[in-house]
Computed example of a mutant assay.
Amino acid sequence: MANKLKVTLVKSTIGAIPKHRATVTALGLKKTNSTVELPDNEAVRGMLWHVKHLVKVEEI
């Protein structure tokens, strides 16, 4: 596994269900095309799995 993950919000959360909006916000993503680096652990991977249709993930 990689040490960090680079996560980019590629699709808007306007039409998403509220739980997915909250997950994207908890990941630290605010606007479309915003990017954050997060630690690669099971908690973050689980959050990303739920919003995989909204984000792009790269291993660093």
Rank of each mutant, 00 (worst) to 15 (best):
K4N: 12
E37G: 00
I60W: 00
L27A: 11
T25P: 00
I17D: 14
K19T: 11
A2D: 10
T25N: 10
V44K: 08
A22H: 08
V57Q: 05
S12E: 04
A2R: 10
A26I: 00
L54A: 01
L29Y: 07
S12D: 05
T35N: 05
T13M: 10
N33K: 15
R45A: 10
K4F: 12
P18V: 09
K30Q: 09
S12H: 03
R45H: 04
H53K: 14
V36A: 08
P39W: 07
V51T: 01
A16Q: 06
K31E: 11
D40I: 03
P18E: 15
T25Y: 12
I17C: 12
E59L: 08
K11L: 07
E58T: 10
N41P: 05
I17H: 13
W49R: 13
E37I: 13
K19G: 00
V55E: 03
S34I: 01
T25W: 09
V10Y: 03
R45K: 14
V57I: 15
L27M: 10
T13E: 04
N3E: 15
N33H: 15
W49I: 00
M47K: 15
K4I: 05
V36M: 06
G46F: 05
V51P: 01
H50I: 04
S12K: 03
L5N: 09
W49P: 00
P39G: 05
K31W: 04
G46M: 09
R21K: 15
E42Y: 11
V44L: 05
A43Q: 12
I60E: 08
I14Q: 06
L9C: 04
N33G: 00
L9Y: 03
K56M: 03
M1V: 08
A43K: 13
D40W: 04
N3G: 06
E59N: 11
V51Y: 01
L29A: 07
K31Y: 11
M47V: 02
T35M: 13
K6I: 14
S12L: 04
M1S: 13
W49N: 13
W49C: 01
M47E: 06
L54G: 01
P39V: 11
I60C: 04
L48C: 06
E59H: 06
L54Y: 15
T23R: 03
T13A: 13
L27V: 09
S34N: 14
R21D: 04
E58F: 07
N41F: 09
A26E: 10
K30F: 01
A43S: 14
P18K: 14
H53N: 14
K6Y: 02
K11Y: 06
N33L: 14
I17V: 13
V55S: 02
K6W: 02
